[in-house]
Simulated scan of single mutants.
Amino acid sequence: MARVVYCGGEFVSEHEARISMFDRGFLFGDAVYEVTAVIGGRMVDNDLHLARLERSLSELAIPMPLPRAEIEAIQHALIEKNQLMEGTVYLQVSRGEEDREFVYSADLKPTFIAFTQAKNLLNNKGQTAGLAVNLVEDPRWNRRDIKTIMLLGQVMAKRDAKAAGFDDTWFVEDGTITEGASSTAYIVTNDKRIITRANSKAILPGCTRAALLRLCSTHGVALEERAFTIAEAQGAAEAFQTSATSLVTPIVRIGDVSLNGGVPGPLTRQLQAYYLEHVNMLQS
């Protein structure tokens, strides 16, 4: 059966959904998006995602298309209509549509679409065995804190990583790791401290990152927010990444260097358990 999606202010079949060719998201990448994980038919950390959506729109002076409560109601309706138990809900808001001009009109009405995707989030290669990540120079613009749909740099990096035998990519700038191509990057030192970059315009403020940092505080796990070098990453005891779709995913190889004998490390496994407990509490 065809998926039900939200487009043009109503729920329609995915085959009936249409967006104008003059939409600024299509013409300029003038749009933002969010992805919320769904596990057991319920959304995970959705309050964080909706707050980040509102912040991203504000940074670009795009108005919210609907009140936050109405957007959440649409998300719930899509999950129910598509009988989604595990996967994601995708939201996208563009500035709106008009004839192609770089300087946009002040009274544009945002274009809002939403859809679900069924995905295996809990039992996949990344969760069980860990991933190998390539290292490449960060190709993106300097406002990475805004979750725009301008993802060509990430698309090219992930394509090249796959062609080279890697599972994913971490970006490098000025000799330090910024973040993953679609994730937050972390290393674990030999004395069991987690290192991850502090939020700034250089990285996206991850929602799963925010949830995990709270869990680290709750469980007394030492964590330091700072940049780390390639040498630190490749000399780390363990590494992992987080995102809405990857949850807490072990990294077992960075470039040509294996970590912890090429298997997920014990602290990473503990953090996976803490996060799944957090997810289960959200379901209750």
Rank of each mutant, 00 (worst) to 15 (best):
D30I: 06
A31M: 11
A31W: 06
A31E: 10
A31H: 05
V32S: 09
V32W: 03
V32P: 00
Y33C: 10
Y33L: 12
Y33G: 14
Y33S: 13
E34W: 08
E34V: 04
E34A: 11
V35E: 05
V35P: 00
V35G: 01
V35K: 07
T36R: 01
T36S: 15
T36L: 09
T36G: 03
T36C: 15
A37N: 10
A37G: 14
A37W: 03
A37M: 09
V38S: 00
V38K: 02
V38F: 00
V38P: 00
I39E: 02
I39M: 12
I39R: 05
G41Q: 02
G41L: 01
R42W: 00
M43P: 01
M43L: 13
M43W: 01
V44I: 14
V44N: 04
D45M: 04
D45L: 07
D45A: 15
D47I: 09
D47H: 05
D47C: 09
L48M: 01
L48K: 08
H49F: 01
H49D: 02
L50D: 01
L50E: 02
L50F: 15
L50G: 05
L50S: 01
L50A: 00
A51S: 06
L53C: 06
L53A: 08
L53V: 06
L53N: 02
L53T: 07
L53H: 04
E54I: 02
E54L: 07
R55M: 08
R55H: 14
R55W: 10
S56C: 06
S56V: 04
L57P: 02
L57Y: 04
L57C: 11
L57W: 06
L57M: 11
S58D: 15
S58P: 08
S58H: 14
S58A: 14
S58F: 11
E59F: 15
E59A: 12
E59N: 05
E59K: 10
L60G: 05
L60A: 10
L60N: 08
A61T: 12
A61N: 14
A61I: 05
I62V: 14
I62G: 11
I62M: 14
P63M: 09
P63G: 13
P63L: 11
M64N: 08
M64C: 13
M64W: 10
P65N: 05
P65F: 03
P65T: 09
L66P: 05
L66Y: 11
L66K: 08
P67E: 12
P67R: 07
R68P: 02
R68D: 04
A69I: 13
A69Q: 15
A69W: 03
A69E: 15
E70S: 08
E70P: 01
I71S: 03
I71G: 04
E72T: 11
E72N: 14
E72M: 13
A73K: 13
I74C: 02
I74A: 01
I74F: 02
Q75W: 14
Q75I: 03
Q75M: 15
Q75K: 09
Q75F: 08
Q75T: 09
A77I: 11
A77S: 13
L78F: 13
L78C: 03
L78A: 02
L78G: 03
I79L: 06
I79Y: 00
E80I: 05
E80N: 13
K81Y: 07
K81L: 14
K81S: 13
K81N: 09
K81C: 10
N82S: 10
N82V: 08
N82Y: 10
Q83N: 15
L84G: 00
M85D: 12
M85I: 06
M85G: 15
M85Y: 12
